[in-house]
């Protein structure tokens, strides 16, 4: 799938979402389709929940500073 040209707005949106730990969903779908076409892809909602659990989840990682 060819990458569509992104606008400034979409970059800003992507930045703000990544600031709170949510990577680009479309990029995730593109990646899954390209590399693991045979396996299921999370829906946008599942993706959101998975990322949310991961950001604050049980891996003890520090993702913010003083």
């Amino acid at each position: 799938m060819p990458e569509t040209k992104k606008t400034l707005i979409s970059y800003i949106k992507e930045t703000l979402l990544l600031m709170v730990g949510l990577p680009d969903y479309d990029a995730y779908v593109r990646h899954r389709l390209a590399r693991h076409a045979d396996r299921p892809v999370m829906s946008r909602e599942e993706f959101f929940r998975e990322r949310q659990e991961n950001r604050y989840g049980a891996n003890g990682k520090t993702n913010r500073c003083c």
Partner: peptide, 19 residues
């Protein structure tokens, strides 16, 4: 597509700064 994602450098700069 989740933890390991090649990210545009300006977007990543924002992420890193916010963190």
């Amino acid at each position: 597509g989740l933890d390991y994602v090649p990210t545009n450098r300006y977007v990543l700069f924002g992420h890193h700064f916010a963190a």
